[in-house]
Design a protein around this nucleic acid. Structure first.
Lengths: 143, 143
DNA sequence: TTTGACCTATGAGTTGGTCATAGGTTTTAT
DNA sequence: ATAAAACCTATGACCAACTCATAGGTCAAA
């Protein structure tokens, strides 16, 4: 297979195939006649594997490590389980953060219903944001 | 105030102050003697405003637009309300996506409990991921 | 044989900073 | 007075994971 065919088979951009090849995730052979890359069924498996792992939140570096382990005839599954656990915890943290942000946004929106739009007066840019309570402490003022 | 003092007052990295200045969010005057930037209370207000807006998910470009409107003596609040609404919708979308991902991860993890770790066999890299059902359609195979 | 569709390598753009470099200035301590 | 520390300047590289643009080489069909 050439680049476009592999890309189409896996549903990705041909440039992604080239990028993954540069990054060492795919290991095509080369046609010496025309310098074209030649991909086989194994590359398609690797590419599909990589895309699924990416959807699960694995980084490209992690995917490469997993593929490299497989190349060394070691089972990558323990590594997969390990990274997956971390990733799951991270997703939970992200959800929490976003839900808190969402709650604060809704609260702010409700509070804004009754606030007039002011023109900046040299003390305030837009009360809507300046009176937003973000519970992050900030420091002293000096001039 | 000089860079570090402003940065400390707002609880940010001095490089962030320089970066925001380059990006036009802060407009310090310059001391012609030594070419140093001089920030005043207004810049501190702008910087704090910018940081709050960033926490709400406003992009730097949006923040700059808002500040520019304020500089033109227009109330930036309508723009703020508008961008805020879009941002709220986006946050909701992000939460949904993450929750779906989370659900699929938990399901996969449960399914993995009873699956053995295999060594790559030329057909499979790691069943854990390859048998992951991601309900994204992909295309035909050819070689 | 020429056009279009493909291939190559390389570099830039995206976002929001952070860090490193190399050099100039000011402040503090000796 | 002077030397070191702590600050300032501008510029460019770096992070992630691609995507897109450029310039040029190759190949298939009309």
């Amino acid at each position: 297979m050439k680049v476009k065919e592999l890309a189409t088979s896996a549903g990705v951009n041909p440039d992604t195939v080239r990028f993954y090849t540069r990054e060492g995730l795919l290991k095509p052979s080369r046609n010496p006649d025309n310098n074209y890359q030649h991909y086989d069924a194994e590359d398609l498996r690797r590419l599909r594997f990589a895309r699924k792992a990416r959807q699960l939140g694995f980084s490209l570096i992690e995917v490469r490590q997993i593929l490299d382990q497989a190349d060394d005839h070691h089972s990558p599954c323990p590594l997969v389980r390990d990274v997956f656990q971390q990733r799951l915890a991270e997703v939970e943290r992200e959800i929490n953060e976003l839900q808190q942000l969402h709650k604060r946004m809704k609260t702010a929106l409700a509070a804004w219903q009754n606030m007039p739009d002011g023109t900046p007066d040299g003390h305030t840019i837009c009360r809507l944001i300046e009176h937003w309570d973000d519970n992050t402490p900030d420091k002293q003022v000096e001039e």
